[in-house]
Every structure is written in C-alpha cells, then in structure tokens.
Design a protein around this nucleic acid. Sequence first.
DNA 1: ATGTCCACTGGAAGTGGA
Length: 274
Amino acid sequence: MLKIATFNINGIRSRLPNLIEWLEREEPDVVCLQELKAPDAAFPIDEIRKAGYGAIWHGESAWNGVAILQKGSDPLESRRGLPGNAADKHSRYIEAAVEGILIGSLYLPNGNPQPGPKFDYKLDWFEHLIAYGSTLLKSGHPVVLAGDFNVVPTDFDIYNPRSWLKNALLQPESRECFARLVKQGWADALRTHFPDERIYTFWDYFRQHWQHDSGLRIDHLLLSPDVATRLRGAGVDRWVRAQPHASDHAPTWIAVAKARLPVPAKEAARKKTG
DNA sequence: ATGTCCACTGGAAGTGGA
C-alpha cells in the first residue's frame, strides 16, 4: 500500500516541528507540501532527511512554494511549473515519479479579492492546469494531482457558505473550472471515498473556526482512472490541526494499492498452456 | 467590516497575503 498525502504547511520554517511530528507518527510514503513561504536555500532539507525522507522543492521568498517528500529516497523530478506557463513567476507546481505514479504537488492561486487581477490570475492558472490535466490523462500514465486547489467544490464541502459567498474559493467560475477538470476523467478521491460525509481540510484562524469545526474542503487529490481503481482508503489527519501552533490546513491522504507487476511473457504463456 | 497568523522590511511596528 502507498500512502500519499497533501499538506498546506503554511510556512515550513515556522511549522517544522509540526511537520516532523506528523511524519513520524503517520509515516506517509509521499507528501505534497504547499505554502513553504521560504526561498530554496532555506528549505530545511537536513531535518527532513533526519526524519527519513528525501525531497524536491520549488520555493520562493515569502510566498507560495511547493515540495514533494518521499520516504526513504529522493523523488525523481519530472517537471516544475505548468507547461505553457513560463511567464508565471510564482512557485506553484512541482511533479515527481514515485512507484510508477506521476505525482503533482500544486498550489492554486487563492484569488481574493474578487473580482480583480488576483481572481483573473487564479482563473488563468486554472486554465493552464486544465490543459495539462488533459495532456496527462491522454498519456495514459497513472497520475495523482494533489494540493491546495483553493476551491470549495460544492456547498456540501463547507460548514455554511453564507459568510463566504463573495470569496474567490466559492465563486461559480472557480467551481466551474474544478468541475471541468474533474470531468476530464479524474476521480476526486476524498469525495469518492466518502460520498455522504462532510469532510473538511481547512479551518481558518479567524473566529475560532477550528473550535467550532467550521471547515472547508479545499485540499484535493485527483486520481487518473488507473489509480482510482487502486484506491483503498482516504482520510484527513485532523489531530494535526488541533496541535499548538498548527497550520490552518490538515494533512489529507489516500491509500493506494501498489501496481501489480506485469506477468512476464514466458510465465504467462506457461500458465496458458499448462 | 471583522477576525488570526506568517514573513518581509528594517531595526519597531506596519504591510501584504491568505
């Protein structure tokens, strides 16, 4: 089994003890991190190695930043930045091949306030992701797109939309983009696994939202069809959000059965004949 | 409008981003 997690860490330097404690307790095989808020040189690779993980990362000063951690080895990087989006100055996408699966760690723009240039940037970034999503599916590769999508897909994915109606995370345009991406053939893993339950991955720091469980589901793992058939479990490590000095997001994960190795031709022939 | 937290700048508290 392969446990793949996504976690918006909200400042990896400030949050390093929380990250290490979670890694040691839950032992995910692969971790997609977002909002490093650190330049490349400040990424705490030594401490992460000490916890038993290799890593690749794409940081920037103060904002954004994404990484992929792999237990026991360095992830094999396959891309950083979305194709056709070289003009994008933000560090929001990094991708690696792990156990035969392409894993993308993404941090979609928040988009507030809307309307405005930040919301336009969000939708533009989304279009690049949608285009690349189509390319990935057509490739036939097993893929997981994991990260903070900054989209609440439906009103079932929020405690109460009332005070969020003007927020970029709930706008029809944001939701339409997410729906259009999923409709290409991706499985929204957490919703697939828990069709009838309220699931939250983010509780903002304001107004005691954690204490009241006033959460939003904005961290998602999208699975290509091959990976979707291997989905065996999913969850949110809510205990991490309850820790002192926590990120406003909780780690969100899936368990996927490892791909069965193809039967060698000779052996297959032998079985057939005899 | 508000609430809270992170990181930068500059060398304190204000600002931007979320």
